[in-house]
Design a binder for these strands. Structure first.
Lengths: 328, 328
DNA sequence: CTGTTAGCGCGTTCAA
DNA sequence: TTGAACGCGCTAACAG
């Protein structure tokens, strides 16, 4: 059996209440008694039982982080940011993997509710968010990151996708490019529709036509990037400049080009989204929109902690963080 | 205030004990009463308070996963495997980031102990493991993955690094290569020393000398791979065949070669370790040792759950999983 | 097969 | 400034 406040109290010659007060930094304690208790804590090697505290305070000191997948540098960089912030407050983070589908996502939400997390940060797996309302009903604060969803409103931390995409395309235009293909994920996902919006806006501003046949949408993965680039390159008049709306599509597209060096022009220039460790070794890449991923995680966690610590329900907050442009 | 077993009991016209039994799938319950309770649970929207259960059972239903870093496909693929297995048992996983250093690692261990996790899976950040003994003292079972450490013994799940490295080098030898460079992490890390062992053994078996000057050790990161490849290529007689002992070193080394296409021979052939999504787009790569990462995570979790569920202390178990060879 | 009851370890009144 | 006593929601032991 582990050491409890009782043991500490006995050793220090005080009551358990006093020990508890010392543990929680209650100011109204005589310095001398505090000292006594503190040494007793060290002597006994006491460790608080969070389960018991949780039962009293109905706070577990853990938050949930729900991501579409674990093996994904974007999501994990956000997770790093979340951990940075959380650790300062002694919070733990239960990471759950939605496996890119709503069913598992809902499943994990149930798990998190049962684990009695104090709050949840979600990077949604799809555009549908009605199942998140369970959290609201359970009184658990939620912060969304990267994407917004339908059927559920909450605080959110997002990148300025529109301007990010705009600036990348504008950059290529200013260096002489005059015709652009597009590869992106489904427009149902808010981040992709925003990036497409920025793409179109840049073309319009510079009087460049948006050509339907060289605008391609798929899912968000490497394979999709490969396939879409193949479709693009097999056209009669393939574009030489392509905006690709996320990192994994970018990787896949590059893979296609590398596998088809003979047929594909070496003059191709790609503007990508997300600047990762490997971005710089992708050939054909000339410029990349960098999201402040870690900062997004930090801000989301900070916002969530604030919600947890203030019971008064405030209106939803939407934080947009600026992107930056990286040239390779 | 939330709904408790009391409310459910009242609604179902039974005692709280019966509700508890239904909740825990106690077999000795009349089907009829079970039905009654189940509907009462649904009607009231009851959700169990795990904190209270934990207090009683001294089990939290969470385990800790301590990794050197989050943004790392190898660690996260292992994490996926852990989650796969855990989720079947309703367990949650608190992921902690050791930030590649012992101090943070120790810090996170304290966090996990305070969170009262039922067990911990560790991918050690260094070769030193004395600080893990805290877990043992707290009565928390531990399983190590990927590496062994000094000063702490526990169950472990490892890849067969020696034979993995051996087979990759042997493969290149059988296709005509006769001189090999080596790039790896510190030999203090058990996985790297094992891979180096396999490398040497292959050369010895085929009567190829191990040439000190083209054997390079660094840390485990991209930058190190870049630098070591540079050192190798700047020698008078640079090797054309190189075994690189992990994925990130491989990426860094490739980066150097791509940045120096003019000077570096295009005949270079690399045998790498770890087969990742991006491995196939790394140029120069001809063969890769693939670790069953996800399976390693699953096995580690399964082993840990077994330890948690059987109080009888058994001798440490060491699981070695076979690697496979992927050609590109 | 089911109910009664006694804590698990802590935080929090209320008195002193 | 401190202590005594109660109860958070649940499970386990024992009765019935």
């Amino acid at each position: 059996m582990a050491i409890t406040v009782k043991d500490v109290a006995l050793k220090a010659g005080v009551s358990t209440a006093t020990v508890s007060r010392v543990l929680n930094n209650d100011p109204g304690i005589k310095p001398q008694t505090r000292k006594k208790v503190k040494t007793a804590i060290l002597d006994t090697g006491y460790r608080m039982n969070k389960a018991a505290r949780s039962l009293k305070t109905s706070r577990t000191g853990t938050i949930g982080l729900l991501v579409p997948e674990l093996v994904n540098d974007f999501f994990m960089t956000v997770a790093q940011g979340v951990e940075d912030e959380l650790h300062n407050s002694g919070y733990g983070m239960i990471i759950c993997n939605a496996n890119e589908n709503r069913r598992d996502e809902e499943d994990r939400i149930n798990l998190l509710i049962e684990q009695c997390v104090d709050g949840v940060i979600i990077i949604p797996a799809s555009s549908e968010g009605r199942h998140f309302n369970k959290l609201r009903r359970a009184g658990i604060p939620v912060v969304m990151v990267d994407r917004l969803v339908e059927g559920f409103e909450a605080d959110a931390v997002l990148a300025d996708n529109v301007n990010g995409a705009y600036s990348a395309v504008a950059h290529l235009i200013s260096s002489g490019c005059r015709r652009f293909g597009f590869i992106g994920g489904s427009l149902e996902l808010s981040n992709f529709s925003e990036r497409f919006e920025g793409f179109k806006r840049a073309l319009t501003d510079y009087n460049i036509p948006v050509e339907e046949p060289i605008i391609k949408f798929g899912d968000v993965h490497v394979e999709s990037g490969y396939d879409l680039m193949e479709e693009l390159m097999n056209q009669d008049n393939p574009p030489q400049n392509i905006f690709i709306a996320n990192y994994f599509l970018h990787v896949g597209a590059t893979k296609y080009l590398l596998n088809n060096r003979e047929t594909a022009s070496s003059e191709i220039r790609i503007a990508g989204f997300d600047d990762m460790a490997l971005s710089s070794i992708l050939g054909f890449s000339s410029v990349t929109v960098s999201q402040p991923m870690r900062e997004m995680g930090r801000r989301a966690a900070a916002l969530l902690l604030r919600r947890i610590n203030t019971k008064t329900p405030a209106p939803c907050q939407l934080i947009r963080l600026k992107t930056s442009l990286v040239t390779h």
